[in-house]
Amino acid sequence: MNIFRLAADMTHLISILVLLLKIHATRSCRGISLKTQDLYALVFLFRYLDLFTRYISLYNTVMKLVFLGTSFSIIYFMRFHRVVRNTYDKEQDTFRSIFIVVPCAVLALLINQERSVLEILWTFSIYLEAVAILPQLVLLQRTQNIDNLTGNYVFLLGTYRGLYILNWIYRYLTEPHYRQWIVWLSGVLQTGLYVDFFYYYFLAWRNNQKLSLP
């Protein structure tokens, strides 16, 4: 565990806490894409199947359980909470998830490192995570007056994957046999999707204006 990896995981955790804070404090999930949240739950579910087969560390197990628990609780609030569910922008959240789920599944079947069910599902989760933010970015573009917590949530999510790239560079330089091009390419693509958002996020911050995407 290096400092970049720890910082990345903590940023990821904080992003989720910021989203939960938004939902609890404002009793609203306005501007949040349920499609992206569904995709993240799927990502965690398929990636962490090894919870039952492989023990890595207490840190690893606890974090996996936290990510699973929080992602499903967010979905619960957005779908079923009697107040929160009414604030969901269903009409605006129109991205068709099937257009990214199917290609990712096909890609995972074709390009993977081991022909086993667990490994293919794990690879699928890597591909899917790379593009799971797309419905959220589309929804943000359609949202007038993006609130601070929503903007910071997306910013932290992008930062988390960017920090993972530093972690991969560090591990590549310090650990022999550390080669993971499937993860690296997906991670770079994932971070790249945020470049546009980052640009407008910093512009709004510098000019002290509310964030909005053109």
Partner: peptide, 10 residues
């Protein structure tokens, strides 16, 4: 297996 590396990541 050298590819198992990142399975220790989240």
């Amino acid at each position: 297996n050298v590819f198992k590396g990142t399975h220790d990541e989240l």
